[in-house]
Simulated scan of single mutants.
Amino acid sequence: MSAEMIVFLLLGAAAGGFINGLSGTGTALFALGFYLVVLDPVTAVAIVALMSVIAGLQGVWVVRRAILAQPRRLMRFVLPGLVGVPIGVWLLNGLDASVLRLGVAGFLILYGGYFAVRRSLPAFARPTPVIDCAIGGIGGVLGGAAGMSGAVPSMWMSLRPWTKFETRAVLQPFNIVMLSTTVTLLFLRGAFATAGPALLITIPTGLIAAQIGIAVFRRLTDTAFRWVLILLTLAMGIGVGVSELM
Rank of each mutant, 00 (worst) to 15 (best):
E166G: 05
E166N: 04
F187Y: 08
R168S: 10
V240D: 01
G94D: 13
V228H: 06
G213P: 14
A3N: 07
T182L: 07
R160M: 02
L100G: 08
V242W: 03
T25N: 12
G237T: 14
M236D: 11
T205W: 00
F107G: 05
I87K: 02
F165N: 15
F124W: 10
R73I: 07
G106H: 03
I135Y: 05
A145G: 09
L171C: 06
K164Y: 07
I176F: 03
F174C: 10
A169T: 02
I54T: 10
A224S: 14
F192W: 03
S180K: 01
A46N: 10
T184F: 11
G206T: 08
L186Q: 07
G33M: 08
G112W: 01
D96M: 06
G12R: 01
M5I: 14
S120T: 15
G144T: 05
A69Y: 05
G144W: 00
L207I: 13
V83A: 10
G237P: 15
A31E: 12
G24H: 01
L50A: 09
L74Y: 04
V45W: 00
W90E: 14
G24W: 04
V38P: 04
A31I: 10
V117L: 12
T27S: 09
V242P: 03
L39Q: 10
I135E: 06
V37L: 13
G206C: 01
P80L: 08
L234T: 07
A46Q: 09
I208N: 05
G17L: 02
L231K: 14
A210M: 13
L179I: 15
T181V: 14
V38K: 03
L11Y: 10
I87P: 06
W90V: 14
A215E: 13
I6F: 12
L245K: 07
S180C: 03
G106K: 02
A134H: 05
M1P: 08
R64E: 12
G113V: 12
M155K: 00
L245Q: 11
R76T: 14
L232I: 11
L102I: 15
T221H: 00
T25V: 13
A97I: 09
R189M: 13
T221M: 01
V53S: 01
A105Y: 08
L22W: 05
I131W: 09
F107R: 03
L188M: 15
P197A: 01
P41E: 00
I6G: 04
L245F: 11
R218M: 10
T194K: 02
Q58V: 13
A116L: 15
A235Q: 11
S52P: 01
G16Q: 07
R72N: 09
I47N: 04
T194S: 06
T233M: 04
P127N: 03
V240E: 06
W156Q: 15
P129Y: 01
W162K: 00
A195L: 01
A151H: 00
T128C: 11
